[in-house]
């Protein structure tokens, strides 16, 4: 273990869905963590409860936004935070999406469920440098319209036809649903990209990642140009606790973003 958490103050809490909130954090004192790049994560500490890895979903000058889903004791405590309360923060940890390696290429961003959170700053970075990349596609899948993160933003993007060229599909629509119905991979038909010159960024449940990456390979993307963000149990984030091993990969150090060329074999072995 290294470096203790720095105190960060909650400046804003924004409910995203029934079980997910976006929490904006700013340094409580003079000390701040080093700058994040999209795809990296922080260890966020809820006082007296514990610490979990959370990807960064917006990178401000000093502020960070984390979109957190209440699934365990720590995440539930973080989702219950109110403005003014403080948490501990360590980071940044892990590899980012490495957007810089995709300069000159079409970008294909595929998100499933909460997997959109770590991809949001990637989209922001690509939009901020419109001449550096080719076409920017954002394909999003969710369970229902009510489970959609950043719904207002996505709807505006979808209506504006890009950039990003955005399409959203849900498994089960509700009245008034404005997007598509089906799995996220079906949205690829409406995306605009040249497979040989495209980098894909994929995050979501592991089954969705596997299905999406296979389809992308089938469509002609090179496996190493499909960057996927994976998740395992994580305790220290500094490569010392051993929990986040996935074969030879220490996800906190070598991940969470790795190429499909490396991930495919690891995810194909059961209980790895």
């Amino acid at each position: 273990m290294t470096d203790v958490p720095l105190p960060y103050r909650v400046t804003r809490v924004r409910p995203e869905t029934a079980d997910t909130v976006s929490v904006t954090l700013a340094p409580a004192g003079a000390a701040a963590v080093a700058p994040f790049v999209p795809g990296q994560f922080a260890m966020v500490y809820a006082f007296g409860v514990g610490e979990i890895p959370v990807s960064v979903s917006r990178i401000g000058h000093r502020e960070l936004v984390h979109t957190i889903r209440a699934v365990g004791a720590v995440s539930a405590a973080l989702c219950a935070l109110r403005p003014g309360e403080q948490v501990g923060l360590r980071g940044p940890f892990g590899t980012g999406w490495s957007l810089g390696r995709a300069i000159g290429q079409d970008l294909l961003v595929m998100a499933g469920g909460i997997g959109l959170a770590p991809l949001r700053p990637l989209v922001a970075a690509a939009l901020a440098a419109p001449h550096a990349y080719g076409r920017l596609n954002l394909l999003v899948g969710a369970r229902t319209p009510d489970d959609l993160l950043y719904a207002g933003r996505l709807r505006a993007w979808t209506a504006a036809h890009g950039p990003p060229r955005c399409a959203v599909a849900v498994d089960r629509p509700s009245p008034g649903w404005w997007g598509r119905v089906g799995v996220v991979t079906t949205l690829l038909n409406g995306a605009r990209f040249t497979p040989r010159n495209t980098t894909a960024f994929v995050c979501g449940p592991e089954v969705m990642i596997r299905a999406a990456a296979r389809e992308l390979v089938h469509r002609g993307l090179a496996p190493h140009r499909i960057r996927v963000s994976l998740e395992r149990n994580m305790r220290c984030a500094t490569g010392h606790c051993g929990h986040c091993q996935l074969g030879g990969v220490l996800l906190c150090r070598d991940g969470p973003v790795i190429g499909w060329n490396r991930a495919e074999g690891l995810l194909s072995v059961r209980e790895m």
Binding site: G141, R143, D171, G182, P205, V207, A211
Partner: peptide
């Protein structure tokens, strides 16, 4: 295949 994947309810709180 798409219907089967959706049957998994992948995006539920604990995956499927």
């Amino acid at each position: 295949r798409a219907a089967r994947i959706r049957l998994l309810d992948l995006y539920g709180p604990y995956g499927s």
